[in-house]
Design a protein around this nucleic acid. Structure first.
Ligand SMILES: [Mn+2]
Ligand SMILES: [Mn+2]
Ligand SMILES: [Zn+2]
Ligand SMILES: [Zn+2]
Lengths: 150, 150
DNA sequence: TCGTTAATGGTAATGGTTGTCATTTACATT
DNA sequence: AATGTAAATGACAACCATTACCATTAACGA
């Protein structure tokens, strides 16, 4: 354990969730300017490999990371993602009923296909209310543009 | 609908699943060399936007696509992914019990958070039997190397 | 303090994906 | 069939998150 790794873990423990590697780099850099972006990537890779950090892809072209251990950490991270604005809602209301069935299926899959299953991913994708109305008005504007050109 | 789009759809209908954009480009190029990679990307984007094709990220750095409509297409694509060799198993055995609870939760999430939810993603991640043994022996070799150097 | 190994950081390279723009195609109209 | 217009296309360049490289530095036990 080095000072750089401690600083990165500290940032992840106190910051909001779903940070990108660059997000973390910027915050770590503020309090310890000697740390480079490469080290952030390497540390995150290490933390993911030992199961201390989860890596997600929400479709916006960069990976997102969140701490799995420590206070105010939840075991399961199921997400509701807006494909319009990349807003992420981490719901916990209906997790319980999901978990039991997911774990049951995990056991069956592991046995049938001879896999060592380490984790799973559940993600709902759609549009939030704001993006939904924007998309509608956006479509209207597009047809107006087409009429102007016609 | 253009000839290029028809060719791409034809390839996706008859090929194995989980093709990357370049996979599709290579196959389309064989039977229609005039089609470029850019058109493949643009067509896939279009097909995804109208819900005819699903786009997945299995963590190997490139997007994967599969047709959602037509014969031999299933409605739900839940995957078991090996993080070692990127092998993908599309299981269908235990889907039924998943679907009902996922749809129930989708309805609750949609109502509570005011989202229009278009699809969801379920993915189990782990190591297949082959990669699991390789990883163990790989670790042993690594320690042997360390001993040789020591 | 010293020595060895692992970690680091700056920078270049990688590679999937997207942007640009001149040219071609599709298709409705004549 | 010929024509006109908007959409689609393809070659190429640009983008950008991530990774590779390598000389330098930090960690840590002796
Ligand atoms: Mn989360
Ligand atoms: Mn599939
Ligand atoms: Zn949104
Ligand atoms: Zn494998």
């Amino acid at each position: 354990m080095t000072t750089g790794r401690e600083a990165i873990l500290g940032i992840m423990a106190q910051s909001a969730e779903h940070l990108s590697a660059e997000d973390i780099y910027i915050r770590v850099h503020e309090q310890k300017p000697s740390i480079g972006l490469t080290t952030v990537y390497r540390t995150l890779e290490l933390l993911v490999s030992i199961g201390m950090v989860a890596k997600f892809d929400f479709g916006d072209g960069r990976a997102r990371f969140e701490l799995l251990q420590g206070p105010k950490c939840v075991k399961y991270h199921h997400h509701l993602v807006c494909t319009g604005c990349s807003r992420i809602i981490e719901y916990s209301d209906f997790i319980a009923e999901e978990i039991s069935i997911l774990e049951s299926i995990q056991a069956k899959l592991s046995k049938k296909y001879d896999f060592v299953i380490t984790n799973h991913l559940v993600q709902y994708c759609g549009l939030c209310a704001k993006c939904c109305t924007e998309k509608k008005s956006g479509t209207e504007q597009l047809t107006e543009d087409q009429r102007v050109l016609a």
